[in-house]
């Protein structure tokens, strides 16, 4: 049923550190690689080798510039499903294909029930859902349900593919409903924020804002390079000889 559960036992989600994300796209490709063979497979690509390439991705990294009085800063911004507590994408679904799990709060699509009406993608303010024109159904981030509970994987690998791939540790996975989880503590320490809170979707994922500028950085620009000073000795003789 597409009614939203009043509460979930856990609220699994991601914490994304905008301070350390370097925009390398490793999470994007890793997500695609895992999920095109995973729970919501395939993540179809249309015309992948020509012009007009288009395809389904669960995770996309935007590059933004944040301009404040302190100056401009480049921010790489990964965008994926936030597994909201009030996911309107679920309540608008006419078929029951979209659902939010009471056990862990993950928002999923049952591909066998989806009629491809696209209304859920309109209801999502974050653009988390992408339509697969080839299969005719809506697709979205599964928080790697087929990894995080997968007993065939070693324990340290039971995290979403994007988290496992991140080379700078900018992505964290955990239970954001538990205030004592490592993810929740990190959010608390770094002042993590929810996206578009004014719309009332109550997203689970949190974004850690970039840290304040470091005071250790040089405040004065280095002096410009000057011509090499004339030297005596052998090198001075070579210099004079070659300068003729």
């Amino acid at each position: 049923m597409t009614c939203i559960p009043a509460a979930t036992e856990r609220s699994l989600g991601l914490v994304i550190d905008l301070d350390t994300c370097v925009g390398c796209q490793a999470c994007v490709t890793s997500c695609k690689e895992w999920n095109t063979g995973g729970h919501m497979a395939p993540l179809t690509d249309m015309k992948p080798y020509g012009g007009g390439v288009d395809g389904v991705w669960f995770n996309r990294v935007h590059t933004l510039e944040h301009i404040t009085d302190a100056g401009g800063r480049t921010v790489h911004f990964p965008r994926s499903c936030l597994h909201c507590a009030q996911p309107a994408c679920v309540s608008v679904c006419p078929t029951g294909a979209s659902y939010k799990r009471t056990s862990d709060g993950i928002v999923l699509v049952d591909e066998d029930k989806c009629i491809g009406c696209k209304l859920c993608s309109w209801a999502c303010p974050y653009g988390a859902r992408e339509f697969d024109v080839d299969v005719g159904v809506m697709k979205k981030c599964t928080l790697c349900v087929d990894r995080i509970y997968n007993e065939h994987l070693s324990v340290e690998d039971r995290v979403p593919a994007c988290v496992a791939a991140c080379p700078t540790g900018a992505r964290h996975f955990g239970d954001l409903g538990d205030p004592n989880s490592a993810a929740s503590i990190l959010v608390e320490e770094r002042g993590g924020v929810a996206l578009m809170p004014e719309l009332g979707y109550e997203p689970t994922n949190r974004y850690l804002p970039p840290r304040a500028r470091s005071e250790r950085a040089p405040k004065v620009a280095a002096a410009a390079l000057e011509d090499a000073a004339p030297q005596g000795g052998f090198l001075g003789w070579v210099d004079r000889l070659l300068a003729r």
Binding site: E65, I67, L195
Partner: peptide
């Protein structure tokens, strides 16, 4: 909502300098 609240970057101005993809995707088309 605003670009600030959409990205969690408070204060100042947020502008896009690079998209995640070079061609129109489902979101841009729809």
């Amino acid at each position: 909502a605003t670009a600030n609240s959409a990205t969690g970057l408070a204060g100042g101005r947020v502008q896009s300098i690079e998209w995640p993809h070079s061609e129109e995707n489902y979101l841009l088309k729809e």
